[in-house]
Design a protein around this nucleic acid. Sequence first.
DNA 1: GAAATTTGACCAGT
DNA 2: ACTGGTCAAATTTC
Length: 333
Amino acid sequence: MESSWPENLPSHRKKVIDELLRGQEIAKKLKFVMSKSTGDDGSMSAENLVREIMNSFNSTLSILNGGGYDDDVSQTPATTKVCSPLWDGRKSSEDSGESSKSTATVKVKDRRGCYKRRRSSHSWTNETSTLTDDGHAWRKYGQKMILNAKFPRNYYRCTHKFDQHCQATKQVQRVEEEPPLYRTTYHGYHTCKNLLKASDQFVLDPIDHFHTDSSTLMSFNNSSNHHQMMTNKQNHPFFTTSFQSIKQEYYNKEDNDMPGYDPTIHNNQALSSDYLLPTDDHDRISTFDHGDLISGVNSSCTTSSHSLDIDSIMAESVGFGDGGDVLGFEFCG
DNA sequence: GAAATTTGACCAGT
DNA sequence: ACTGGTCAAATTTC
């Protein structure tokens, strides 16, 4: 609805995206080169720089791509209960038909699978050695054996899908048995407040993180210029586990598949825009100009890790609820 | 009893 | 036709 990109700008937009993609590729290459030429320790700060470059590209691209963002809305909300006009909700049917199993079958046939399949959406993967709490309340809604996979894939949605219209989902798949390795793919963004879990826990130390391989509850260390703003809404899946690597996917058909999993982006690379942009048509943040938002965040919060800032902003903005005067948030001080 | 999980069915995309 | 993603009834857990 409220795209921050005028629709008469597709060519400019495409150019911008192309340029950013080019830069992103170069940064990837640089990262790769650096990782080969330097040791683990020595490359740390340089790697951080690269990571931030990547972050910046990712954010910008996400924003640009967000012009036509349809993310998880492609999935028909469960609130749209009606699939066929014949179906008027299961209660009534059940009431009338406690009778037979055959009617039950018909019922089910009318009802099941009434959704729109996700086509293009932002997603990112996160590989972890342990199954850990990422600070969000998830509810499992499915499990499926996937072709050529040793383990079933588990499907989770945000617990607040219905009460807060939160569209976030994730898929967890065990990819290795020894050592255990889980690949979590996140789709969509949390627009929920996550009141139960986000308030008092889960601050993490991305550094410690590399050293202790199994903690889920992490203490936050400000010394990292990366994640210093990570405060109370540590819901970035990226920060949740020990040992992890992350890939953001723009769902280009060419590179979105798991097997092609690209380990170029390692650990804690917060993809800010994933949290910045709303997933549905509640135009919370889109009431801003994206550019203003990002630059504002950066300038006020010292680093380029706007991801985290934005996350907190996101938390704020979600709270505005009724839209309108969205600019009332305050930056970290 | 409410919430979460399990599991078979259904549908969309390829 | 096949596969992956989701739905929703049934079941389990708290």
